[in-house]
Measured scan of single mutants.
Amino acid sequence: KLATQLLVDLAEGCHTHHFNSLLDIIEKVMARSLSPPPELEERDVAAYSASLEDVKTAVLGLLVILQTKLYTLPASHATRVYEMLVSHIQLHYKHSYTLPIASSIRLQAFDFLLLLRADSLHRLGLPNKDGVVRFSPYCVCDYMEPERGSEKKTSGPLSPPTGPPGPAPAGPAVRLGSVPYSLLFRVLLQCLKQESDWKVLKLVLGRLPESLRYKVLIFTSPCSVDQLCSALCSMLSGPKTLERLRGAPEGFSRTDLHLAVVPVLTALISYHNYLDKTKQREMVYCLEQGLIHRCASQCVVALSICSVEMPDIIIKALPVLVVKLTHISATASMAVPLLEFLSTLARLPHLYRNFAAEQYASVFAISLPYTNPSKFNQYIVCLAHHVIAMWFIRCRLPFRKDFVPFITKGLRSNVLLSFDDTPEKDSFRARSTSLNERPKSLRIARPPKQGLNNSPPVKEFKESSAAEAFRCRSISVSEHVVRSRIQTSLTSASLGSADENSVAQADDSLKN
């Protein structure tokens, strides 16, 4: 292990032709098999893994070397290190390495390699500790012929580059190093199909959405987006994914797998022009299946994007999809995704031109529960009313008269009656009930004795009459309010007539 670390330190600071010789020695160290011998017992696995620490030291050392060589000349050094790393990870899946030390190597290698970024000039870069990406002036992410390196360097940008540029090249004859992302992409596909350690798979799935944002990485080298989509959909639809995973937390289920895969599918929607129609349908189907899991909100957001990006695919699945959405409970976490999906859909009339009455009724059935102001915040309630109004205007004229009683009944049950079921009123009724029952229970537990009763009969009569009056008032709060309003209006009217009579009498006395 110490000798391997010494080789790594020497290679990191070497800029001459001896660098390749040092890498040859490190490569021989990495070539050791990580498969346990067949006769190895389970209690000896930890000791055997400790004997392979030099392999881990070599791989982690290459990660440090690549981070240094990416910004220094010659660029061919970075290319050689990158290829060695990718080849080593491929061996893991070729020979099915399952030892804990092998999983640790893959975890740290993917953690580093999935941080690679590219700008519009195809320059590769890595983020620093502050998250700012520094791009290399010597390494690009696409394949290029050595003699055409300078031509590639002087080509115009596709868009303004992001991030601070690296140091300027030493001279005009500098050759750019090619670090094609397709090599890593193929290893990522192998990981999605064969990885057995949940920690490694979770890391890859968590980092892929951010990497897919940099389309330069994908399009400048032959990366098959179709295969990526197929691998992701197979993970969700195939039963073998959960069987092969180990190291998963207790209670791990298909729902947890959906939570990890759906963000990658959402990021892949922007590549729909490069996906086969069959793959697009598979993607939409997987998102529909996710509606029954805890990732339902993410799936609804993804389907909203699909309705804009892939209208030809979503239009066929939309009638059944809208009916499925009615089975989702009206909760605060689902309110905004569902209502925004319906609001977006209302502005795309070509998608729902074939809707029948059942689909329009489903839209109103989804939106009406969110009009309850005692359960949802003001934004959700306003958005629900907006969706109902928009869809009522957009639905066909023959359907409107049939939906009017349905909508008014839903609004009455969710908006008007919600004020009668407020917690304050319920607590008031509970308190009044307890007050009504309390005197009775006290009389049963403690019967009054005439000799020891010091309270006069008049006081008892007053208290009983007050309790009886309170019971009468607490029967119905709404009736009490109505009666008080009527009494107030009658009182004001009587006072007004009394004032008029007094004024008339005063005038008569003055005349006399």
Score class of each variant (00 low, 15 high):
S49N: 11
L52R: 06
L52A: 07
E53C: 08
K56C: 05
T57G: 05
A58P: 00
L60P: 01
L60Q: 14
L60C: 13
G61Y: 00
G61L: 00
L62K: 00
L62P: 01
L63V: 07
V64R: 15
T68H: 14
T68G: 07
K69N: 02
K69H: 05
K69F: 00
K69R: 05
L70Y: 01
Y71N: 04
T72D: 07
T72S: 14
T72R: 15
P74E: 03
P74F: 01
T79M: 14
T79P: 07
T79R: 12
V81G: 01
Y82R: 01
E83C: 11
M84V: 07
V86G: 03
S87F: 07
H88D: 00
L91H: 10
L91I: 13
L91Y: 07
H95P: 01
L99H: 06
I101D: 01
S104N: 10
S104H: 10
I105R: 00
L116A: 05
L116P: 02
L116K: 02
A118P: 08
S120K: 13
S120A: 12
L121Q: 10
H122N: 03
R123Y: 05
L124R: 02
L126V: 09
P127D: 04
P127T: 05
P127A: 08
P127G: 04
N128S: 05
N128H: 08
K129S: 13
K129V: 14
K129I: 10
G131H: 05
R134E: 06
S136V: 01
S136N: 01
Y138K: 02
C139G: 02
C139E: 02
C141H: 02
M144P: 10
E145M: 11
E147S: 09
S150E: 13
E151L: 13
K152A: 13
K153V: 13
K153I: 12
S155H: 12
L158A: 14
P160Q: 14
P161N: 11
T162A: 14
G163W: 11
A173N: 13
A173T: 11
R175I: 08
R175C: 13
L176N: 10
L176E: 08
V179D: 02
P180K: 05
P180R: 06
S182P: 02
L183F: 09
L183G: 15
L184Q: 03
F185C: 02
V187Q: 05
L188R: 00
L188G: 01
L189M: 07
Q190E: 11
Q190P: 01
Q190W: 05
Q194F: 12
E195C: 00
S196K: 07
S196W: 14
S196T: 11
D197Y: 03
G206Y: 11
R207Q: 04
L208M: 07
E210D: 08
E210V: 13
S211H: 06
S211C: 14
L212P: 00
R213Y: 05
Y214D: 06
K215N: 04
K215W: 01
V216I: 07
V216Y: 04
F219C: 13
T220K: 03
S221T: 04
C223K: 03
S224P: 08
V225H: 02
S230G: 12
A231Y: 05
L232T: 03
M235D: 01
L236F: 06
S237Q: 11
G238C: 13
P239Q: 14
K240D: 14
K240C: 12
R244L: 05
A248L: 13
P249G: 11
G251I: 03
F252K: 02
